[in-house]
Design a protein around this nucleic acid. Structure first.
Lengths: 221, 221
DNA sequence: GCGAAAATTTTTGGATCCAATATTCAATAT
DNA sequence: ATATTGAATATTGGATCCAAAAATTTTCGC
């Protein structure tokens, strides 16, 4: 029976919780690139000791979201053009792999779920909500693939990419519409079971995204 | 001036050191799949407190080398056929990417280094030394690519694969010869600057490796 | 004797305390 | 005035101690 509904019963140690919060903050651009993340400060803010904070930072370092130097502290690494190029190059390898596997395995209820996401995505005007639906679309789609390792690798890439995407938030609303349309296109191909066309649409989607971000980087960095 | 020669002066916090040792042990198959890695035991064995051990385990979990359950402990996750399939599928995407970039950037002295590695690899009879030269070959080759992120992702994949490879240690000596020959083939293509041929040779190398391992898994798991 | 409930033991997670190192700031010499 | 050196401060890393939860053993009832 366990905890009522289902899923996983009470997870998360405080260290994991701290890591979650820190990750959110980092991806939201809360910390400047040269700013040290002070353990004591975080500990006080969250009402815990420094131990779980340190463990959280260790995790985040393994994920590449911070860099720690001995006796100096943890900082968010600088954004770099090479990194973003690598992120998108890797996405262009991994996502087609996941998409093909997903198309081979996907179930009707999952397709319905995807349609629902796209519909809501189209309707909403809220940028953060839209962003959430955006990742949910990809996550739902790829989970049908049954490739947990590739999924984990991709998750890490998307986490890193998020730091760059946040700068993109200010971009046009047509960006949003265009993205929704591409999602719809991909979904249509999935429903039709046309893997090649789906991959084409997906890659176009990613590439378009990539040029958008790199253009943005070019302005600032 | 600092510490004599050069490079980085005394790195590594004890937590990192512990992580290194644990990683070695895990990859060497020191811990059974259902066996809990007890913090206190590790701490005593290495003469440190449990704190750095915990931090090390947190890092290793982020790398996917252990799984931790709240208040239960850390275990090495089970080997799975799906994981090994994913690993090799991902390697077949990432390594060609790195190889092409490496060929575009590689310098004469790096090529010389690679030749040296292959030569030594051919000569040695020691299996562990050979394994070391094996990874050094790939590492040296890909470092020329100047793609740190892809390199990091690949490193993680190779770490995971190592757990499967160790079972392969008992395989024939002709495995070793064949592998050396393939390295030589790849190196020849690199020298000739023929990226397509190099990638073909590399993929053949990886695929051959994959079938070898999956065959092995089939026997045991 | 066997099963269930309770107590003991073990082990992890977190907090507090101490040591090691880096940073900052003041004093001093040139 | 400026650079250099040394003391004071701040901050991280590690050790010891305590609490929470799981595993194990013991005890009690039948």
């Amino acid at each position: 029976m366990a905890t009522a509904a289902s899923g996983k019963l009470e997870r998360s140690t405080t260290a994991v919780e701290v890591a979650r919060v820190l990750k959110q903050r980092i991806l939201a651009g809360h910390y400047a690139e040269d700013q040290f993340i002070r353990q004591e400060l975080i500990a006080q803010e969250l009402g815990v000791s420094r131990i779980p904070v340190r463990e959280a930072l260790a995790q985040l370092e393994a994920e590449g979201l911070v860099v720690r130097e001995k006796y100096r502290g943890a900082v968010v690494p600088k954004l770099s053009v090479t990194e973003i190029e690598e992120i998108y190059a890797l996405r262009l390898m991994i996502e087609p792999y996941l998409l093909r596997a997903a198309i081979a395995n996907i179930q009707p209820d999952q397709i319905a779920h995807l349609s629902e996401i796209v519909r809501r995505s189209r309707e909403t005007g809220d940028m953060t909500l839209w962003a959430g639906l955006n990742v949910e679309f990809h996550r739902t789609l790829y989970e049908a693939a049954g490739k947990p390792l590739a999924m984990q690798v991709l998750d890490n890439l998307l986490s890193r990419a998020d730091r760059y995407l946040k700068m993109q938030r200010f971009l046009s609303a047509e960006t949003q519409e265009e993205s929704d349309a591409e999602h719809q296109r991909i979904l249509d191909c999935v429903i039709a079971g046309d893997a090649d066309a789906a991959v084409d649409a997906l890659c176009a989607h990613i590439r378009w995204n990539a040029t958008d971000v790199t253009r943005m980087i070019g302005f600032t960095a």
